[in-house]
Design a protein around this nucleic acid. Structure first.
Length: 412
DNA sequence: CGGTAACCTGGGAT
DNA sequence: AATCCCAGGTTAC
């Protein structure tokens, strides 16, 4: 496999460098410059986003009916749900709808529309995320207590998963200053909050293994099927959530089993990759994690040895889970952006590995060591533009199609 | 090396 | 109704 040779990234932007702690000792609650100081070691539970009509909860979570009836609705909801814990992240730092359902992970489910709420597994923690009335992010731990984790452990896991140490607002200011197109898209998206996650590498590899030449709905279905092989964590909003399975568990799946589950030719990729990872000295988890401290070209090369992993999937895994903030996944959407705005001389040409390297280089030259974060925003801009167009045409041209549960796709 | 065709599947367009 | 085309690519000629 040819290895795209991406240049060494330029030094960190001064502002980011100053705010970024060394990777080695990742801070649990890093200070975010733009955010007011509000975190204490034991933050008081926040008022949960008010549920206007408390829906019927899963039986497991319901207090005894007799007692519940005596409580005011809000109190009952609070008791059934537990406490919402605020995080020092404001919409400019993290917008849930611009981060969770926009293609870097396919495992979160929208479990409430008003207030907007997403639920997913972060490691073994089953959490819901929502914006408080003041805009801050808050999380609710569903499987805490005996047999589960503590809120403080969940908080630490979330800070890591959300890449909370990276000062997004500062990055956006820099990006907008060097690129008019970015400024335009950023404004259209509401000014901030599209954040690159720091996912578990195993989870990330297998998610993007399912993504090739595929559409979002089916990717979500396949990824959800994979997750189902992991340990059950609980049920929220009618969805049963699982911890993502281990490599060992995935390696025990058969290609036939996955084909019957609708994976098509990707079935052999999943099993093959699981087996290769399993055979790594020290285990696949460790091998993948070790890539976090390697240079990007080496990371891409290593990932491309896995069956079903090509340059695009490798770049996704590198960016979304391996700290390669200047990795640029070149897919059809980004290719469009690139040929339209960044390198018009490439218009009409086909996306070859060599050209995709050239485009990636151009992104890094323009946006610097966090170019992947800029690319992610431009991608989302392209995505939403397309979805808006699709929505328009369907309204105009077709009769009201009965909507199947298309539930978790990105829409505005 | 660059260009091309299969490759599973499902939904929407023609 | 049948067929084509496309969807966040990768692999094999």
């Amino acid at each position: 496999m040819r290895v795209p040779l991406l240049p060494r990234s330029p030094p960190l932007p001064a502002v980011a460098a100053a705010a970024m702690p060394p990777r080695r000792r990742r801070r649990i609650r890093p200070p975010l410059p733009p955010s007011p100081p509000l975190l204490t070691s034991t933050p008081p539970p926040a008022t949960p986003p008010v549920e206007t009509t408390p829906k019927s909860e899963a039986p497991d979570h319901c207090p005894p009916p007799a007692r519940r009836r005596l409580l005011p609705l809000v109190a009952a909801a609070a008791e059934a749900e537990g406490d919402w814990h605020p995080l020092p992240l404001y919409p400019a730092d993290l917008s849930l709808p611009l981060t969770l359902p926009t293609g870097q992970t396919f495992l979160w489910r929208r479990t409430s529309v008003s207030p907007l709420r997403f639920t997913g597994a972060v490691g073994a923690h089953l959490v819901s995320l929502s914006h408080l009335p003041d805009g801050r992010i808050a999380f609710l731990l569903h499987n805490g207590g005996p047999g589960g984790g503590s809120p403080s452990a969940a908080r630490a896991a979330l800070a890591d998963y959300l890449n909370a140490a990276v000062p997004l607002a500062d990055l956006w200011r820099r990006f907008a200053a060097v690129d008019a197109r970015f400024a335009e898209v950023a404004a259209r998206l509401g000014g901030g909050g599209a954040r690159v996650l720091r996912q578990d590498p195993v989870e990330c590899v297998f998610q993007f293994l399912c993504s090739s030449n595929n559409n979002i709905a089916r990717i979500e279905k396949m990824v959800w099927t994979l997750a189902g092989y992991g340990e059950r964590l609980g049920e929220v909003g009618g969805f049963v959530f699982h911890q993502f399975p281990t490599i060992e568990r995935l390696a025990r799946l058969s290609e036939q089993e996955l084909r019957e589950a609708g994976f098509g030719y990707r079935a052999k990729y999943v099993v093959g990759t699981a087996k290769i990872l399993q055979a790594k000295p020290g285990g696949g988890e460790k091998w993948l994690a070790s890539l976090r401290t390697r240079e990007l070209p080496e990371v891409i090369e290593a990932l491309c040895t896995l069956p079903g992993v090509g340059p695009k999937v490798a770049a996704c895994v590198a960016l979304f889970s391996l700290d390669q903030n200047h990795a640029i996944p070149i897919d059809t959407h980004v290719w469009k952006v690139a040929t339209q705005y960044l390198m018009p001389e490439l218009a009409g040409k086909s996306l070859t590995p060599k050209l995709s390297v050239a485009v990636a280089d151009a992104f890094v030259a323009k946006f610097g060591s966090y170019a992947g974060w800029a690319q992610n925003v431009l991608f989302i801009g392209q995505l939403s533009a397309q979805k808006l167009m699709v929505a328009e045409t369907t309204i105009v041209s077709t009769k009201p199609t009965k909507r199947k549960r298309s539930g978790n796709n990105f829409k505005t």
